[in-house]
């Protein structure tokens, strides 16, 4: 039921920001209209879920929204600039553990924890990018592939945040204006999702986005016509890192307990890539479609099949989609239109 609600988001957001004429004469961005539509939609979702009054709705909604943030983040670097970040699980976990560490050390709450997590993972993205982005793109990808393994090693060996045993966060029973803790977490993630999609859309329609697209199409030519490619790529990796970390920060608050195995779950790594590519990388709407579709499917499927089989299916879908529909669902519709 929540999946249906989510599909509503994407349809209405689509109405709010027409992209009927992509890459023709400079599209008028309608930024205010987009934000208004997104906020109205978010409010409608909250009201709708409250009327339904089922905790599971918040749970499923959080699950899908978290993937909207994660895949929008991936898309800024992967979809626009063509640089593949395999480290989504690493960035996500780095965000989650930043929130845990700051709570233990200073008693910081969720919202400042999110800000701090974004800061830490942004630096992580910038650092990895700075060391590898002067080379061919694959070297950046390989570095991000290893990053998750190393971060996991660090966390497992770091007793302060629980090591391999994991860490607990005592959740309050209620957060005042919200009917339940589940609703509170849902609303937090909803805000992050609106923010992430909005940022990704703003990037796409801005000068930065054009520069990234030029890099994706032909990096040498982009440099030759005055595009500062390294700087743009670093901005994109940093943004991508920030948003991935922000998606992870609420994780320990959401589940009440987090261990390295769950934080570095393979599910994040594969979904962060599969969702944008299946939805249609290169457009801000693609990751949203992918996250709603794949996230909804996985949410529905966990009831009947094991989580490993679930992930296995996602892996196959990724391979099949990139082979047969390299432009994703959006590209497929555009070509038919």
């Amino acid at each position: 039921m929540s999946a249906a609600g989510e599909r509503g988001v994407e349809a209405a957001v689509g109405l709010g920001a027409p992209r009927a004429a992509p890459k023709l004469l400079a599209p008028s961005p309608h930024h205010a209209l987009f934000w208004l539509g997104a906020v109205l939609l978010g409010a409608a979702l909250v009201v709708g879920l409250r009327l339904i009054g089922n905790e599971y709705g918040y749970f499923a909604g959080y699950f899908i929204l978290q993937y909207i943030v994660l895949s929008s983040a991936w898309n800024i670097l992967g979809g626009y600039a063509g640089y593949v970040n395999f480290g989504a699980a690493g960035f996500m976990a780095a965000g989650a553990y930043t929130a845990i560490a700051l709570r233990k050390a200073f008693g910081l709450d969720l919202l400042p924890g999110i800000v701090a997590a974004g800061f830490v993972t942004g630096l992580l993205g910038l650092g990895t990018g700075y060391l590898t982005l002067r080379l061919r793109g694959v070297f950046f990808s390989i570095a991000t592939l290893c990053l998750a393994v190393v971060l996991q090693t660090l966390i497992v060996n770091w007793d302060y945040v629980g090591g391999s045993r994991g860490a607990y966060i005592v959740r309050p029973r209620e957060v005042p204006p919200f009917v339940s803790y589940g609703e509170y977490m849902f609303v937090v993630m909803l805000m992050l999702a609106i923010l992430a999609v909005g940022i990704s859309r703003t990037v796409e329609l801005s000068r930065l986005g054009r520069g990234l697209q030029a890099i994706r199409d032909n990096e040498r030519a982009a440099e030759a016509v005055g595009v500062p490619t390294l700087r743009l790529k670093l901005i994109a990796t940093t943004l991508c890192g920030v948003l991935m970390g922000v998606a992870g920060a609420p994780l320990p608050y959401y589940s009440g307990y987090l261990n390295p195995e769950a934080a570095f779950s393979l599910a994040y790594a594969v979904n962060a890539i599969a969702m944008p590519l299946i939805g249609g990388a290169g457009s801000w709407l693609g990751p949203v479609i992918g996250a709603v579709l794949l996230g909804g499917l996985q949410q529905a499927a966990t009831v009947t099949i094991s989580s490993a089989l679930n992930l296995w299916i996602v892996g196959w879908m990724l391979v099949i989609f990139v082979a047969l529909f390299p432009r994703g669902i959006i590209g497929w519709f555009r070509r038919r239109a």
Binding site: Q213, A214, D217, A221, V225, G226, V227, G282
Partner: peptide
């Protein structure tokens, strides 16, 4: 020729202007 393949002719020429 090394055009930006996914951008229109106009956008190809706008890129240097955007950053110049």
């Amino acid at each position: 020729p090394q055009p930006f393949g996914s951008l229109t002719v106009l956008e190809n020429v706008r890129v240097p202007l955007l950053f110049g």
